[in-house]
């Protein structure tokens, strides 16, 4: 019976339902017209008042209009449901990944606590274990914070603190911080080019975006991390291109990497950790800044380039940027009043 399984696919069900519906309407129109012709011929002889051509035409037109409206409605509902099904599948993946991401550090913390409870662990080892437990506790804290912040960002409940800043200077500062945080040598991340312009940014949010990109470059580079950040600007945009020498992203996946919960499963991947939220978070942050992010990769083992474009304060998207500054100012005042 496997050959009939395709009938269960939502697209097939939708097409068959549409065909059934259209056939029914076709039969109905045929029936209506053929009856109408008879009625037209005989009606005059029975009772001339019954025949009103204009009323019949209007009924037919209204009927057709309603038919198109119903078809359109069904199509839209189908598209919406299809999206929901896809999202539900991705959500299932997310639950699997988040379970792994939460349970692994928890297992590690439990292991060290039970070890110290069960054995006489030398002092130096104890210190090492405590440091590993703290590492895991921080990982858990970061994971939980990310989930809460993304949820807040989606519901617009996160207070941003936007301010006008020198584009180059903020990049240099944030990348210096990232080098220390990820314990990367100076030459692992190189900044080239120049961008003498100003833009409106929330420093903390931009740090999250940069950290995510650097973390990805680290996770998906098999050997040494080599990240180049090219800065440039034109009349309206400040452009940052993060190019790594990692395993690359296939053309098929390039479209989906910014989608919520999306993760790439690849046998060549040197890393399997992650929730599928990182790049979605980056995209949302950049979108909130009035900018956009895209990715280009020549494919396997050819590295990837993430391009971020932010509007320049003086020349682009002024109304939106000014509204961001106003919101931040208001929130700042509220915080001071409290």
């Amino acid at each position: 019976m496997k050959k009939w399984h395709f009938l269960r696919h939502p697209v097939v069900i939708f097409v068959l339902a549409q065909l059934a519906w259209l056939s029914l309407v076709g039969i109905w129109i045929y029936w209506y017209i053929s009856n109408y012709i008879i009625f037209d011929k005989v009606g005059d002889k029975i009772s001339p008042q019954l025949v009103s051509k204009s009323a019949n035409l209007i009924t037919l037109l209204i009927g057709l209009f309603l038919l198109v409206a119903i078809l359109l409605g069904m199509y839209l509902i189908f598209i919406y449901l299809n999206k929901q099904i896809k999202l539900a599948k991705l959500y299932d993946n997310f639950i699997g990944n988040i379970t792994h991401e939460l349970k692994s550090p928890l297992a590690s913390i439990q292991l060290y606590l039970e070890t110290m409870n069960m054995r006489d662990v030398p002092r130096s080892k104890q210190k090492e274990f405590i440091s590993l437990m703290m590492q895991d506790a921080n990982r858990l804290k970061y994971l939980i914070n990310s989930i809460l912040k993304i949820s807040g960002l989606e519901q617009k409940k996160i207070y941003f603190n936007f301010e006008v800043c020198e584009s180059e200077s903020i990049v240099y500062t944030l990348i210096d911080n990232a080098r220390q945080q990820f314990k990367l040598p100076q030459k692992a991340i190189q900044i080239i080019g120049s961008a003498p312009c100003q833009c409106v940014t929330d420093r903390d949010a931009l740090k999250i975006a940069f950290d995510n990109l650097i973390d990805n470059a680290t996770k998906y580079s098999a050997d040494n991390v080599q990240l180049t950040i090219r800065l440039s600007c034109n009349l309206k945009k400040f452009i940052m291109e993060f190019t790594d020498q990692g395993i690359g992203i296939s053309a098929k996946n390039q479209k989906d990497v910014f989608k919520k919960f999306h993760r790439i499963y690849d046998q060549n991947s040197p890393n399997v950790k992650g929730t599928g939220l990182g790049l979605y978070w980056v995209k949302e942050i950049i979108k909130y800044h009035g900018g956009k992010i895209s990715v280009i990769s020549a494919g396997k083992d050819s590295g990837s380039t993430f391009k971020i474009e932010l509007p320049i304060y003086q020349t682009s998207k002024q109304r939106y940027i000014n509204s961001l500054l106003k919101i931040s100012l208001k929130n700042g005042l509220k915080r001071v009043e409290k």
């Binding site: 550090p105 590690s108 292991l111 060290y112 054995r119 590993l132």
Partner: peptide
């Protein structure tokens, strides 16, 4: 085991 923190503890035990 790919989780270093867990592997160190398991190896020790």
């Amino acid at each position: 085991e790919d989780e270093e923190t867990l592997a160190v503890g398991l190896e020790y035990n």
